[in-house]
């Protein structure tokens, strides 16, 4: 079991308190104080489950802007094109599909980086991450792909997550 560290508690507290303010959206002293107490209690108990690496990593403005730009720009572009593709398959009678599971290498090393890439892949219609493994220091993802165009791991990886991974690499290792 990991020990509870102060930066981790602070990061969890900030996220919990931000959610409290967004959900209540009333700025009386009572509400704000109650929210602070509840958030602090939750952060003390659960910080060690949430934060496993450096807690202040995204507090750097350059990284934070890169993160925002990735979710609003790069990811949205991929999401919309994949959605149009999926809608075309569905309205076309779901016949011209060619499903399969491919194993692709990923350059990400940290848990957060792998999670961000894997969840981006899963959130894009047409690909679902099913498993991650590590072999000799290289991380691999097993991805279910509805329309397999490449079976070579490198080329399939470029087709599935090329631009997503380049976007994530700007703020997570």
């Amino acid at each position: 079991m990991q020990k509870t560290k102060l930066p981790a508690v602070l990061a969890t507290f900030v996220v919990c308190y931000a959610f409290w303010i967004l959900l209540t959206w009333t700025f009386t002293v009572q509400e704000l104080a109650a929210g602070a107490i509840v958030s602090l209690a939750i952060a003390l108990f659960s910080a060690r489950f949430f934060v496993h690496e450096k807690a202040g990593w995204l507090a750097n403005p350059v990284r934070f802007l890169a993160c925002l730009g990735y979710w609003i720009g790069t990811f949205m572009k991929e999401l919309i094109s994949a959605n149009l593709n999926m809608a075309r398959i569905c309205f076309g009678g779901c016949r011209d599909i060619n499903p399969g599971i491919v194993k692709i290498p990923t350059d990400m090393q940290s848990d957060y980086g792998i999670a961000a890439v894997a969840n981006s892949i899963t959130l894009t219609p047409g690909t679902i991450t099913m498993e991650t493994t590590e072999e000799d220091g290289q991380n691999y993802l097993y991805v279910h792909w509805i329309d397999v165009k490449e079976t070579d791991p490198e080329k399939a990886g470029e087709a599935i997550k090329g631009s997503l991974e380049r976007g994530v690499r700007r703020f997570w290792k």
């Binding site: 959605n83 999926m86 569905c90 779901c94 219609p125 047409g126 690909t127 679902i128 509805i146």
Partner: peptide, 8 residues
Amino acid sequence: SRMQAQTC
């Protein structure tokens, strides 16, 4: 494949 479609 059904699971893929629900992502839409």
